[in-house]
Nucleic acid binder design. Structure first.
Lengths: 210, 210
DNA sequence: CAAGTTACATACCGAATGGTATGTTGTCAA
DNA sequence: TTGACAACATACCATTCGGTATGTAACTTG
């Protein structure tokens, strides 16, 4: 018997309800943008109703905020920061992770772009609440990247002259730029060119051959 | 007497009407996104009516297409390609132009992002017509950038080993990434960091000190 | 100048949207 | 066991939106 019934269960679980709504909203927003997705669209993708949604989230905007704080933000850490811990040289880790998550990603997924970048471009100039949360997520990404660059420097992989904060900004910018460029060109073909060029930059700030 | 009357003139000028509608739509779309702007919003910013708009553009989407082809595309050439012709070394030109158009731009303008990038992120995955036109604009930007890189190479500024196509992709990506990053962080403070890092990349592909 | 056509202006419409009002049921403390 | 409240479900609403139907004045053409 399927544990995940299509009909609402008799037992209540508000946290799970909330999580399921967010999980349903995420891919829709990724594909259509926040403004392009309606409450009804989201509800349709869950086993819940509009009443449940508006009970969990007072407004559509609040749902968007939760999406940033509770879905997008953790995703950044999980995908782009945590994996670096497994690499002695973080620069290698960054290139490797890019190859893994962008280079090898299915084209139809890549065309949807980066969840964070999409929301930044769409919502940051429109709404202060979004702006604040997206900014916070971006700064977290930069800060954590810088931490690993500092580690790289301490381990002698990075030239002493490198400003790790500057480099971290550039690297995060490149992530978002890669996604944006691939999305704009419509095919992932440009990825290799981009990662090669980023490699040249990495080489320029490194003390040894990568 | 003001030549530009607020009331519609008795004399007709369809091309001017069309241009005025596009001119009114452009800043609105830049600020609120394409989906975030209504036909009535646009009409309100002109001395024309909804009837005129739908006479010039059969649908809202067609207006968006025209915005890409007739406003955004020329803007790229005018801002980022043409100015390079005045520089013996195009790499210097790119950095100089970035400083001029991004570094010195008013923060409230920067927060709105890059017109092309905004539309790419918002509309490319949603609509094939947008996708085609945005892709074409991006490829034009890359191609024209590559032309100047080839010139740089011929003049001996670039290392022979540099793949100009790859580098052109990376440079265009950086333009869009810069805008996106500044928009996301909410303040132009990051620009200097980004342009410094791009300078390191430029140095790495150059034959001499910049 | 007559007749047709283009370029609008005005009024209106059906559908979609975010949100609400109200009813119902599970849950839990006393 | 029983209220009381949280967690929903259902029905409904006001507004907004892209688009259209229709009327009219300017312009072109024969």
């Amino acid at each position: 018997m399927p544990r995940q019934s299509r009909r609402p269960p008799k037992t209540r679980d508000p946290e799970r309800t909330r999580a399921e709504i967010l999980a349903a909203a995420f891919p829709l927003v990724l594909r259509h943008g926040f403004q392009g997705v309606s409450i009804d669209d989201i509800v349709e993708q869950t086993r819940h109703t509009k009443g449940a949604l508006f009970h969990q989230f007072p407004t559509k905007r609040e749902l968007g905020y939760a999406l940033v704080d509770e879905v997008v933000r953790p995703l950044i850490i999980e995908r782009w920061i945590r994996p670096l811990e497994g690499f002695e040289n973080p620069l290698e880790g960054i290139l490797s992770q890019m190859e893994e998550l962008i280079g090898k990603a299915p084209p139809e997924l890549l065309k949807l772009g980066c969840p964070l970048n999409n929301l930044v471009q769409e919502m940051a100039p429109l709404d202060a609440g979004f702006r604040k949360r997206l900014q916070s997520a971006l700064e977290l990404w930069v800060t954590e990247t810088e931490r690993h660059l500092a580690r790289a420097k301490a381990a002698g992989f990075l030239k002493k002259s490198v400003d790790t904060r500057e480099a971290a900004h550039f690297i995060v910018m490149a992530h978002e730029g890669f996604y944006g460029m691939i999305k704009g060109l419509g095919h992932p073909h440009a990825f290799e060119a981009l990662v090669n060029s980023l490699g040249i930059y990495f080489q320029a700030i490194s003390t040894q051959e990568l």
